[in-house]
């Protein structure tokens, strides 16, 4: 029980900081819209082109936005000397991981909740369906599970922001592949019911569980000294 109280305390602290500064969500949403706009120039706006590259644009946008926001997860902690405070506190390293992970998850979901309607508006795609929202949520869990771990690693290196993308992107490839597949099916008007989408969602879910368990187990080794 104390474990979850500690987790909630850390997550609440992150939510409060974010509500007061609006640093991460605001900046990353602007970035996400910029990525979508640039893709629009890169691929053109014909209906066929959008149907073909739409799901890809969505996930490239979310992956890049994820890198940007996850980088910020530990940098303020490090700069303010708060990481030492967290480590000195009588809480387990695992609680720090889960707390920070939930905080990043909420930031990412907030960013996606704004970026998805913008995406729908600009490309005229039906994004407000249960399968697509569920795909986004499940894939985001996978993103933050790995991302929180590598963010804690990156912040302690000399290169900081450069380290996260080169570690994060190759490792989340399985999640990106499954998310793109599930979203393509969810965005395709000819798809009826759940059918194949459910299979892909189960795959994303399985990847989430694996990444969460492994990250939970090894996180303690990253922040010690």
């Amino acid at each position: 029980m104390t474990f979850w109280r500690n987790v909630m305390a850390i997550t609440w602290k992150d939510i409060l900081t974010e509500l007061r500064t609006r640093e991460i969500v605001f900046t990353v949403v602007v970035f996400a819209v910029l990525v979508i706009v640039i893709f629009n120039f890169a691929f053109g706006t014909t209906r066929e082109a959008v149907a073909l590259v739409g799901p890809g644009i969505l996930w490239v946008t979310f992956a890049f936005s994820g890198v940007l926001s996850l980088n910020r997860a530990f940098i303020p902690e490090k700069e303010g000397g708060c990481l030492e405070g967290l480590m000195a506190a009588p809480i387990s390293r695992e609680a720090i991981y889960v707390g920070k992970m939930l905080g990043s998850l909420l930031s990412m979901v907030a960013i996606e909740a704004i970026a998805l309607p913008v995406f729908a508006l600009l490309f005229d795609l039906r994004v407000f369906s249960v399968p697509l929202v569920l795909t986004t949520l499940l894939a985001t869990i996978g993103f933050v599970a790995v991302g929180t771990l590598f963010s804690a690693l990156a912040v302690n290196t000399r290169a900081r922001e450069m380290v996260l993308p080169i570690l994060f992107l190759p490792v989340v490839v399985p999640v990106i592949i499954s998310a793109v597949k599930a979203s393509a099916l969810a965005l395709d008007p000819s798809t009826e019911g759940w059918g194949e989408i459910l299979g892909w969602l189960q795959i994303v879910g399985a990847f989430d569980v694996i990444f969460l368990v492994v990250s939970y187990l090894v996180f303690g080794f990253l922040i010690e000294e």
Binding site: L153, P170, V173, P174, V218, F221
Partner: peptide
């Protein structure tokens, strides 16, 4: 320590990448 963590996650990731592709 950091490299060891990447070495573990990276290897676990290999079958996942293979299955997904």
């Amino acid at each position: 320590r950091f490299a060891a963590v990447v070495g573990i996650i990276g290897f676990i990731d290999v079958p996942l990448v293979f299955l997904a592709t």
